[in-house]
Design a binder for these strands. Structure first.
Lengths: 119, 119
DNA sequence: TTAACATATGAGCCATTGTTCATATGTATT
DNA sequence: AATACATATGAACAATGGCTCATATGTTAA
């Protein structure tokens, strides 16, 4: 929609400079979209719990399911999401598959998030 | 559902220790839920763009709307979400309301997120 | 008070998404 | 080959969520 042209009046006239400045400095939409997609992956309590579990140790799918008290299927679906976001990696050992974290930024991001919710 | 009891067999029998260890170290569900809620707020490209705009400067609602090319109503709705998450603060100046970031952790979280999506 | 502007909000619609259920794939053992 | 175990996946359903539209609230000026 292009309704954003409705108000070239007093307020916006006065702050045109700021608007222009910010418009230039804002990162590309594509990058911002990817950032949002990343946070969307973190924005589910099941996936948050999986990630926090993997902070401790690598784990097999049924192990994660047991810790979280959830179905193997549900966990597997969520691991797929985490895998597609390149947040976890896995290794096979016979029938079982062990998942672990694949990114160093996750810990930092989560630490800051924990600090925020603690206030 | 309690289907997580379906596999006290070979795999899980072997990794009982890990499961117990992780179960103990995992933060409270309430905290993990709050963390997920925080990321959920970050998990929308409109809100990401608003936050990034506010990294540069405080802005009025219609200014944000102009920068993002969106409706005043849409922006206002999203600012409400950000406000409820205690991520932005605001000050009135006559008819216009200026929003700015209210949290020091946001910058760190976003920097790490940017680094992740750049790889 | 009336009019104009800036922002906030409620209802409704459409799209997205997490879980379940059933089933498929992959691996090891007999 | 047949069975059992571990994991992956597709379909379907219910719930959530972002945007639009209409309207309400709040503020200033005439």
């Amino acid at each position: 929609m292009e309704n954003n042209l409705h108000n070239h009046d007093a307020c916006c006239e006065a702050h045109t400079k700021v608007v222009e400045e910010v418009s230039k400095k804002l990162p590309d939409d594509e990058i911002l979209y990817d950032v949002a997609e990343l946070f969307k992956v973190f924005g589910d309590s099941t996936r948050v719990r999986i990630i926090c579990a993997l902070f401790e140790d690598e784990m097999c799918v049924c192990g994660i399911a047991e810790v979280l008290g959830m179905t193997q299927s549900a966990i597997s679906h969520q691991l797929r999401v985490l895998k597609q976001a390149r947040l976890v990696k896995y290794r096979r050992e016979g029938k079982t598959v062990f998942y672990s974290l694949a990114d160093t930024h996750i810990k930092t991001i989560f630490n800051q998030a924990f600090e925020h919710v603690m206030e």
